[in-house]
Design a protein around this nucleic acid. Structure first.
Lengths: 196, 196
DNA sequence: CTGTCAAGTTTACACCGTGTCAAGTGACAC
DNA sequence: GTGTCACTTGACACGGTGTAAACTTGACAG
């Protein structure tokens, strides 16, 4: 971004990404420095705090995955039902990519305001996606009539939380595919009108 | 339990309970000591580590609430559907009581094996409750036929996770009652045969 | 060739929270 | 009065984050 060597910066980000993705819990600043082949202080030269490093890593990962492209199919869909299913597929399949850093960020929410805000902001973006899908269902009259659009959005948002992905795939051992299929099914049952 | 004054022990447990329940995050050993009107070292005299103190606090809370009594109605129910609803009510209404300490325990899962195991054990007990409800549905032929009993249990377990309660009531601002009602509804839609 | 500047390294240290240790105090039992 | 038990006081080690300052190295300008 600013003054120091850009190559070093991305090496730090890649190292952070890789370490967190590999499931190592307890990733310390010194671990990251070692993995990046750089001194611990060099990390602080680029990222003033651990929280900012993690946040920067989420952006780094986003950039590597073309997030907008992943959501394009959902946005382009004709029916609300399609939009819902494609959104679940897109987001559900993106979760594994950000889970590592997300977990680290979530772990520090309680004692680091910046981490809390950053993660909350990202989750708010997911909520907007849920909201859009719900609105599309509403337009098609496919949303359960006994549900306000806010309730429906909250419900979908909860179902698609990273914690639920973690729960099913890590605790219960579900495959990624099983997770996505069941979430589509569950979201359908939760949100769609039953008649038809 | 052992040698030191029992009264002090329960004062520490009560203080821990109260502090965690009050939503204060970052509850340190010194905070607890202060709240209990005791020196920090006295806390260590009764509980060797923070993790053990928190675990003891969960048991303390359980003891104060007659957990078995809360589940009696569910266990006594005649139909599987009743059992499911009563279980959701019982557990769902118990969550607020253990949320404080649960949150603290969950926060240290990554770096404390003992905390991880203790919390996992408690959640496993919840899973057993889910399993029993699913089996009751199965006996009544009320379980969706395209779901194995394990899948159904995992799904219900996920729905009833403390994280989902936290998500809906804290992030989305739902009332306790709205949470319970929607969970009953959602679990029904997720697990029950649609015909009828 | 030399001076300077920027990026990184090395070493040291402050701070915080957990957990340990050892000596001291005060009440109560016998 | 002498133990002994529950607790206090004060000191300290450890691990992880973040800060500070002095030193090295390489590139580039004049």
């Amino acid at each position: 971004m600013s003054s120091p060597n850009l190559n070093t910066r991305t090496r730090i980000l890649d190292a952070t990404w890789k370490l967190l993705e590999s499931g190592d819990l307890q990733v310390r600043m010194s671990d990251i420095a070692k993995a990046a082949g750089v001194s611990r202080q060099a990390v602080y030269l680029h990222f003033p705090t651990r929280a900012e490093l993690l946040v920067a890593t989420t952006h780094h990962i986003d950039a590597a995955h073309d997030v907008d492209g992943l959501l394009a199919a959902s946005r382009a869909s004709k029916s609300g039902r399609d939009r819902l299913n494609l959104f679940i597929e897109a987001w559900g399949n993106y979760i594994p990519s950000i889970y590592g850093v997300g977990r680290a960020l979530m772990a520090m929410q309680d004692h680091d305001e910046e981490a809390r805000k950053a993660w909350a902001g990202r989750m708010q973006a997911v909520r907007h996606g849920c909201e859009a899908a719900v609105r599309a269902l509403e337009n098609d009259k496919d949303l359960r009539p006994d549900l306000s659009s806010e309730e429906a959005t909250d419900l979908l948002w909860m179902l698609l939380s990273v914690r639920n992905w973690e729960h099913l795939t890590r605790q219960s051992g579900w495959s990624q595919q099983a997770y996505v299929e069941n979430m589509k099914d569950l979201a359908g049952k939760a949100l769609l009108v039953s008649t038809e």
